[in-house]
Each structure stands twice: as C-alpha cells, then as structure tokens.
Simulated scan of single mutants.
Amino acid sequence: MPRTPRLAGSLALLTVVAGAALGGCARGGQDERHDTTPPAAPRGLTVQAGSATTAHVMWNQATDDTGVTGYEVYRDAKKVKEVPSGKHMVDIVGLRPATTYAFTVRARDADGNVSPDSRRLSVTTPAAAAADHKPPTPPARLRGRAEGSRSAMLTWDKSSDDRGVASYEIYQGSSKIHSVGGGQTATLVTGLRPGTHYTFTVKARDAADNFSDAGPKLRLTTAAGKDSGRGTAPTAFRAATHRADGAYYIDLSWRPPRTGGAVTEYQIRLDGRTATSLVFGGTAPTDKADHSFYIGRKAGERHRIQVRPKLPDGTWGAYSPERTVTTG
C-alpha cells in the first residue's frame, strides 16, 4: 500500500473533523449524547410461591431520567426472565419442589443502562403432590368494598383441596393482578383509578399446579375524586416522648391497616422527611404496633411525626395523621 504523505494525512483529519461538525449542524447544532445514567433499583419486591414449581414475583415501577424500557428478573445469580416496562409481575416456572430460591429484579433503559439489584427476597416452594390431578374447589362468596378512590379490600371463603391449597390468584377482568398464600383469604388491591368500575374474581391453585374454576364475580366502583388513600393508612396513631439516661425518645403506637396479610415494614416520617424504615422480624403485629426511637438530649424540641405501611403487594400505603410531640 503506498505511503500517505504527511500533508494529505492532515487534510484527511481536517475533513473528518469538518464532517463531524457538519453532522452536528444537521442535528440542529447539538452534539449527540448518550444516556449513561442507570435507572433506580426497583422497589417493593414481593415473592409468593404459587405451587411446587412456580413463584409469583411482583415489584413497583422503577424511575429513570429517560424512561425504563424493561425489567430483568434473576433467580439467584441467573437471569430467568425479561419483561417489558408496562409489566411489574411475572410467574417463574420450572422450579423444583421444596426448594428455596432467591429473587432480584433490575430495570433497564433504552441505552442499555441497568439498575442496581432490587432487594433480595427468598421463597421456598412447597413439597410436590404425587399424581394429583384434582383441582381445588372454587373460592366461594367473594365480597369486598372500595377503600377510597384507589384501592379495594377483597375477602373470600377458603377453598378445599385433597392435598391443600398453595395459593389464591386474583384477577381483574381476565388479567391476573396478584397472588397470595394458600392460608390467606383476603387481600388489599391497590393502584386502582378513581370513579372506575372493576370486576374481580379469584381462583385457587394447589401445589401440583391444578387451578380451580373462578369463584363468583365481584363488581365494585371506586370513589370519585382524589383522596390520600386513607384506607391504607395506619389508624389510632399516637406519639409521646419519654426521658431515659439523660436522653429523649419518641414512643409511637398504631393499628396496622387491614390488608389481608401481615404488614412487616413501615416508614417513619419526621419533620417532613423520611427518617427511617422499621422492619418487624418474626411475627409482625396485627392488632397493635409499638416502636420507640432516640431523638436527642435537648428538652423543648418540637417534632412532627407520621408513619406509613408497605402493603403486601409491595406498594406504600398512605401516611397516618400527623402527630406533634415536644421533648420534656
């Protein structure tokens, strides 16, 4: 190949630079920029064993400066599912009975940026039921009521099965929207729209993946207008202070909202800002919850406090009414 003269090489470089500048003008005089900021990690992850070989994974919509285009679901360290941005739940199949699995979810944007992992949750599938081809009976007497404009409380009668019910699947129209354990016969459905008619049904599922027929339909209408989702807020919220060893503490008590399941996590808001998250280990309180935390050593300080629950479907409920306390 003939050697390129030095002057010609300089002209070639100038041509490339000029071409880049002209290309920039063709785009309106702005340089093309690629998004390098990853989405936020998905929050509100919940995992429920649906049968001996399946698990139902749900999460909240993640945020991104240019928009989330999809989600990646990981079982342990292996990616097992990709779903589009409009979906926030998926059934993972092909699991082994009586086995513990850990799940995480990541969000992805249009430029391929991937978020950090969601929190990691583990679930254990029930033992297999040998040669079980008999489905559970349909859940009877589905009933419920709208809880304000954006949620509804559903309850139903327990299904029967020769080997036991593993889970209940909740449907809005023909779409599955939630799954709860076989020992639960109520759930709070969130994310509804104000002044809207809804039709719900429930199916029972056993460990061998036999589904019952849908139980009776429930039709209800959410309240019109906006509200704070007060039906999902803790009630009987109280706040006081006490002094011990020269320091002051704030004492809280409340009744958990009715959700059909246990509420294990709460967020405490202090003086208009999120102060901490409270997670109950072991058995979460169902009738009355109590919590006390250090606030400082100075008397006469005034503080405003609220608390809100994380609901079983992974979304945050409404804040309790605000209470005001003064140290000392």
Rank of each mutant, 00 (worst) to 15 (best):
K78V: 15
V279P: 00
A262D: 11
D117N: 09
P321N: 12
G300N: 08
M89V: 05
Q61R: 15
K134R: 14
G94R: 04
R193M: 12
T63W: 07
G23E: 04
R230P: 00
D31M: 03
A129N: 10
S175L: 09
S277N: 15
I295A: 08
R243P: 02
T274E: 14
A128D: 13
R106L: 03
A244L: 13
G164K: 03
G328Y: 06
H197N: 15
Y198Q: 03
T259G: 06
S160V: 15
S277F: 12
G23T: 04
A107C: 10
H197I: 05
T100M: 05
S212I: 10
G328M: 06
T199E: 07
S118F: 07
T69K: 11
K203S: 13
R269W: 14
E82P: 00
V93L: 13
H133N: 14
P138N: 09
I250D: 09
T187H: 11
G281Q: 08
G246A: 04
T190Q: 06
K288S: 11
G246S: 04
V123E: 09
D109V: 04
G300A: 08
G182D: 03
G317M: 08
S175V: 11
D35H: 02
K310C: 00
P321E: 11
G144K: 08
D132I: 07
T15S: 14
A204Y: 13
G67E: 09
R145C: 01
E301D: 10
R150D: 04
S115C: 10
L121T: 12
S159P: 08
Y101H: 09
T4F: 05
H197T: 14
A49Q: 03
G296K: 01
V83P: 00
D209P: 00
G67C: 11
P309G: 09
D271T: 05
T54I: 00
T54D: 10
